[in-house]
Nucleic acid binder design. Sequence first.
DNA 1: CCTTTCGCACCTTAAGCCAAGCTTAAAGAT
DNA 2: ATCTTTAAGCTTGGCTTAAGGTGCGAAAGG
Lengths: 218, 218
Amino acid sequence: MRVLIVEDDTEILRLLATALTSAGYAVDTAGDGEDGHHLGSTESYDSIILDLGLPKLDGLSILERWRKEGITTPVLILTARDSWTEKVKGLRAGADDYVAKPFQMEEVIARIEALIRRAKGIVNPVLTIGPLTLDTAQSTVFRDGRPIVMTPLEYRLTAYMMMRHGAVISKTEITEHIYDQSFDCDSNVIEVLINRLRKKIGAEVIETRRGQGYVLAL
Amino acid sequence: MRVLIVEDDTEILRLLATALTSAGYAVDTAGDGEDGHHLGSTESYDSIILDLGLPKLDGLSILERWRKEGITTPVLILTARDSWTEKVKGLRAGADDYVAKPFQMEEVIARIEALIRRAKGIVNPVLTIGPLTLDTAQSTVFRDGRPIVMTPLEYRLTAYMMMRHGAVISKTEITEHIYDQSFDCDSNVIEVLINRLRKKIGAEVIETRRGQGYVLAL
DNA sequence: CCTTTCGCACCTTAAGCCAAGCTTAAAGAT
DNA sequence: ATCTTTAAGCTTGGCTTAAGGTGCGAAAGG
């Protein structure tokens, strides 16, 4: 799962980034409106955290532009406490949720997770596909009820595949969603990852579609 | 829908042009940077395909000029494979998407269509023809609701035929659309492919028009 | 006008080759 | 010390080629 944070306060940015990273997300960041807008338009994220007060280009304008461009990525906006009008404007402009500053890290993460689940059409916070169960609150995957110890990458890949179960997922899509920016995909990392994952969750769960990608079989 | 292609390799240009034309687009072409820039500035297009390595005036400069001139037409850039820096530069300069060479015709067309849809704010990735359903998001074809496992070529052919259902599609058209660089050799690849496809999706779905091509019957 | 014949376009099957993907180990990064 | 990436050799599925079969459709003969 890959998230973009657009925030000019470097301290808040740092905190959010580390919190999300250790929650198992691939994180990209932007310090001003222009970069933020640009990244959001051109890269593929599963969710975006957007501050409203930004240099160069303010959050609301960015959001409006994205929506005009047809970008439907769920957006969580950060606003100053008690600013009713901003909240309304934000939701009007197409935001999916909002959090007032100052905030609890936990809350932001929980809401991001809810947004992503909602966007992928998953209602229950715990997702079960065949023998596998994904608990995002615990960042844990279970096979037949038993927890499986995973590395961050393994967990991200599993979570992503479970949320898109049944779909053929290409290697490009995988790299785009479990790695952050600047990753040169001229190697067999994905294959190695898939290999390790198969050993952990069972080889029969992940089907190979030669020349197309992988499918999480039901 | 009108598209401009700026590309110096005449073979690639021809392939792109014919592919887009038969996909229902009006196509203009330019063989070098100056012509390309000029056309893009003075005519109005729904989308532009821009090669980065061009004689006279390179792609990046053209793109920058257009954006300075206030031209917001969605631009898809073509770059050499693995050139991460070029991709970043292109997206920085205001490109909306990019495809690495060598590329699949189908992918370019799909991305162009996505760009245009995005610009106009429409989404509909599922196409149903008779008992067949094409879900491009999942890269899967369904027959009577059941997924059919296909090889890359089979999938491309099916997708192409479904998008042009009812039309007679010649073998030449098929080779030009589902193969990246046109290979001209008199072999029976297409017949073999069609044969395998019929076994998977049902023989009655694909009609033969002797001496003309094939039709996806409704 | 109907029938037969013949050529050509298309169908079918199977074998071989190549590249995509698998696997393992070791080096590199954090 | 753990996790990730690189590298190298190996395996296998999908694509192509080739060879023989089938049937359409046109032209010639009845």
